[in-house]
């Protein structure tokens, strides 16, 4: 058991050591996608605890967060291809368009 814990600790520390070298832009994108996912989880918890009465509103909120998470991950992959160069900025246009489309669909569905 102790051996397993040690292995896990080792994995975690080597991960964080490697992650520190990640470019800042990617770190920010990671933070954003994690927060979007956390928001989705919180809404799910709320629906479980309190009820899903305006079900459309719950679906809109939940899938908006999941969609944001997915789109942000795609942007992260695109930005990673540029290897931290400033040319990654041109990927933001498509991301903005996709997010705005997602948002108008979500707001339309909230009612």
């Amino acid at each position: 058991m102790a051996q397993h814990l040690d292995t896990l600790k080792e994995i975690a520390s080597s991960f964080s050591a490697a992650y520190v070298k990640t470019p800042t832009k990617l770190k920010i994108l990671d933070a954003f996608s994690v927060c979007a996912l956390a928001t989705a989880v919180l809404q799910f918890v709320y629906a479980k605890l309190v009820g899903t009465f305006p079900f459309n509103a719950f679906l809109a909120g939940f899938f908006c967060c999941v969609g944001t998470f997915v789109l942000t991950l795609s942007l992260r992959m695109k930005v990673a291809e540029h290897g931290g160069k400033p040319t990654a900025a041109k990927e933001f246009g498509g991301y903005a368009l996709a997010m705005l489309t997602l948002f108008i669909a979500a707001v339309n569905y909230i009612g």
Partner: peptide, 25 residues
């Protein structure tokens, strides 16, 4: 309860700002 949970659901956004600043944004 709803308002409280709305604040809780907004908390990750605040967490993002903190995380981004710590990452060096």
């Amino acid at each position: 309860v709803s308002l409280l949970f709305a604040l809780v659901a907004l908390a990750p956004l605040g967490a993002f700002v903190v995380l981004a600043l710590r990452a060096g944004a």
